[in-house]
Simulated scan of single mutants.
Amino acid sequence: MMDQPLDLDAVRAFVRIAELGSFTHAAEAMGATQGAVSLKLKRLEKRLGCRLFERTPRYVQLSPRGAAFLDPARELLGVHDRALASLVRERQRIAIGISDHVAGPELPALIARMNAQDPQLAIEIRIGSSDDLLQRFDRREFDTVIVRLQARRSDGEFLTEEQFGWFASPSWQQRADEPLPIATMAEPCGVRALAGQLLDAAGVPWTEIFVGGGVTAVAAAVTAGLGVAALSPRMVPFGAVDVGPRLRLPTLPRLPIFLHTRIRDGRPRDALAALSAAFRSAARG
Rank of each mutant, 00 (worst) to 15 (best):
P5R: 00
A13G: 07
K46S: 13
R43E: 13
D81F: 12
E45S: 04
R93W: 03
P179L: 09
I123W: 01
D81Y: 11
L84N: 11
V218M: 13
R16L: 05
L249K: 13
V145F: 02
E141A: 03
E187I: 11
P57A: 00
K46V: 09
L48Y: 02
A168D: 03
D143F: 04
G203Q: 11
R65G: 06
T56A: 01
L44E: 07
P237K: 06
C189D: 15
A85P: 04
M1S: 13
V79F: 03
F167V: 02
I263S: 06
P108L: 08
M114A: 02
G227R: 09
R126P: 00
Q61L: 07
Q150E: 11
Q173N: 10
Q92I: 03
M1Q: 14
Q163N: 03
Q150K: 12
A273P: 05
D143K: 10
A240H: 02
S129G: 14
A68Y: 01
S130D: 14
Q197F: 05
P57K: 01
A95I: 06
G165D: 05
T24Y: 09
I127S: 04
V11Q: 07
P253Q: 04
R192T: 14
A103E: 04
D9P: 03
A109F: 08
M114G: 09
V215Q: 14
G212N: 04
R74K: 15
A83M: 12
V222G: 12
L52D: 06
P250V: 05
A202G: 14
